[in-house]
Every structure is written in C-alpha cells, then in structure tokens.
C-alpha cells in the first residue's frame, strides 16, 4: 500500500483533534508534528462573524450609552417573563397602524389564500385582516410571533416571492410542519456555527423561509432581530447597502465579508432590521416588496429617488388611511413608503 502523503496525514491529525481525541504529537514525523501542533492551537479558533458583531455592539452601545448586558440568555428571560400564545410565541404584535414597525414584508403570490393556510399550519401565523387590495387582488395581514407579514396577489398579478429569516419557538417542529404543508427542503435543520439551530424551506409559491431557533444568548447573535426579518439577496450587495442607507435612512449594523464578497450584513431602518447577502445561487436575487413606515413620506420619497430609486407612485393619500408612495430600487425591490394619515 502506498504511504499516505504528509498532506493526508496532517488532515487525519486535524480530524482526530476536531473530534476531541488526544494525539501524541511526539510519535509523528518532526515536520508533521510541528504542523499538527499549530493545528491543535487552532481548535476553537474564534469566528469572524462573532468578532465583527461584538465590535459593532460595542460601537453602538457606546453611542447609545445602554447598560452593560448581563450574561443571562435574553431569549429565555423574555420567554419566561411573558405568556406564550398557542403557537409558542411570546409576544402578540400590535395590529394598530400607528404602532407598526418600520419594515413589514409584502409577499405577493398568485394564490394568497393558499399561502395564508400554509403560514397558519407551518408557523402558527394568525390572520388579522383580509380584503381586496388596490390592484384588485387580495390584501391580507397576518402576525407571526411579534411581527406582521402582509400578503397580497391574484392570478393576474406578478408574484414577488420573498426570503424571510424567521425565528420560531421550535425549529425542528416548524420545519416538519412546513414539509407536511407542501414546502420543499432547502436545508435540513442543523446546529449552525453562528449560534442558531436552523433549516430552510421553500413553499410552493417560491418564498424561502430560513427558520431558526437560537441556542446561544441572543446578545451575541441576533439582539436586533424580531420574529420576521426580510432577507435580501441583491446582485451588488454593497450598492444595495448604499441605496438603503442613502435613500431610506438606513444604518449598517454589521457585515461579514469574505474577500470582496458581502456574505451577510444587517442594516437598521427605523426600528427594524433587514438582512442581506450577495446573490450567489440561481434562485437569487429574489427581489421583493416592503411596506415601509416613515415619519415623512414626501421627504423619504424624494430621498429614495435621489439615491437611484424609480417612482411608481408619487405620494398620495389612500382610502385605507395611509399616505403612500411607491419606489422601485435599482435591484427591483418595491418599497411602499407610508405614513398614517392624521385624523
């Protein structure tokens, strides 16, 4: 049998260390022994994302003068302090318009009623409102956990499937229920290096649900996120971040880059956060639509156009109680910019 190369032998040693086996390095060839020693010291190497997120937290904390976070698991704390609903979520969202968050995903599909059934079955969504929308299709509003999702569409309306990062109380159960309800698996549930147990499914309408339950304190992975976070996959992530910061008043919270490529980033818009990563797969970029509450629709509309947005509707008072402007960004996402009408 041919002797294994030093490259293979070194990998055997690394694999053994990764499994927690103790190796006697003195038994190895001198060259191999030195390299295996380096590898041994690398076991437990910190993750780049942890380092960059902690840096962002420190910088943000300084600017906000918030108290020192404690070591307890905030997720557990929140969950034990508040009563869960039937689906296991801890907070009911406030449906009143003036209390909505800045960013709400607006998912458009050919068969919105079926999508609503799917969300109720798979993720314990609660339907609050269903009516005919301005384009003649359905308009519905559901809550999942602490967040609102808007659903719209009809056979004659072009669908806009969306990618969502969704926190659920039990990711294994949600994943199974989603498959039962007809979704296909994108990624089986597994513990992830960034502190979540997560999996991915695509529903029959083409929406992608990155479902997750955190297993380390949210302090280190997701303190800014709500139950539902829209995940963008633009072609040109840097330019997309530029548009959101210049055109929509966003503020970049963190990024994880490999070389020039932005693998993952978070941007705060008002009281909400969006996530994004450079488009890397054939199913992407997956442009979507967002209902965006702001203080001043007219000013934000002008700002978005200056940053490269295209007007689809100038600011207009709508019968449903919002002043609304529609802007398409250079990445084909549509932003329904809105403020509640007074009185």
């Amino acid at each position: 049998m041919a002797e294994r190369s030093i490259i293979d032998q070194l990998d055997d040693a690394v694999a053994a260390m990764a499994e927690g086996r103790q190796l006697d390095l003195t038994n190895l060839e001198p060259e191999l022994s030195v390299l295996a020693g380096v590898a041994q010291d690398l076991i437990g190497l910190p993750r780049e994302m942890f380092k960059s997120e902690l840096r962002q937290q420190l910088i943000r904390r300084d600017s906000m003068s918030s108290p020192v976070p404690q070591l307890e698991d905030k997720f557990t704390q929140e969950r034990s302090a508040k009563k869960s609903d039937d689906a296991g979520y801890v907070k009911e969202p406030e449906m009143r318009r003036e209390n909505r968050r800045a960013v709400t995903p607006y998912i458009t599909v050919h068969q919105p009623a079926e999508l609503i059934d799917f969300l109720i079955h798979a993720f314990g969504a609660i339907e609050h409102f269903r009516a005919t929308g301005t384009a003649g299709g359905m308009h519905a509003e559901l809550s999942i956990g602490d967040s609102i999702v808007m659903i719209g569409g009809a056979e004659h309306i072009e669908p806009k499937p969306t990618a969502i990062h969704l926190y659920v109380p039990d990711v294994d159960q949600a994943y199974e229920r989603a498959l039962e309800a007809g979704a296909r698996s994108l990624m089986p549930v597994a513990d992830q290096p960034y502190g979540e147990r997560s999996g991915g499914v695509e529903d029959v309408h083409g929406n992608r649900w990155y479902i997750a339950t955190p297993f380390v304190p949210l302090q280190t992975i997701a303190k800014d996120l709500h139950t539902v976070t829209v995940y963008f996959h633009p072609i040109g992530a840097q330019r997309f971040i530029d548009f959101v910061t210049n055109g929509l008043g966003g503020e970049e919270l963190m990024r994880h880059q490999e070389g020039e490529m932005i693998m993952h980033a978070k941007v705060q818009i008002g009281d909400s956060v969006i996530e994004l990563g450079e488009a890397r797969y054939p199913s992407q970029p997956l442009p979507t639509a967002i209902y965006l509450y702001v203080d001043d629709v007219d000013a934000m509309y002008e700002q978005a156009l200056k940053a490269g947005g295209i007007s689809m509707l100038a600011p207009t008072d709508q019968a449903y109680g919002d002043r609304n402007a529609w802007v398409k960004d250079p990445f084909d996402n549509v932003w329904y910019i809105a403020s509640p009408l007074r009185g």
Binding site: L71, G195, T220
Partner: peptide, 20 residues
C-alpha cells in the same frame, strides 16, 4: 472554558465591562 458559546459570552462580557 471549553465550550464555544460560553467563550463567546464571556469574551463579550469582558469587552462590555472594559468599555463601561
């Protein structure tokens, strides 16, 4: 501390304390 999640939490705690 051998556990990665615990190492991360303690490291975060040290820097938050140091900044404060």
């Amino acid at each position: 501390v051998r556990d990665r999640a615990e190492t991360q939490d303690l490291t975060a705690h040290v820097f938050h304390q140091a900044l404060a």
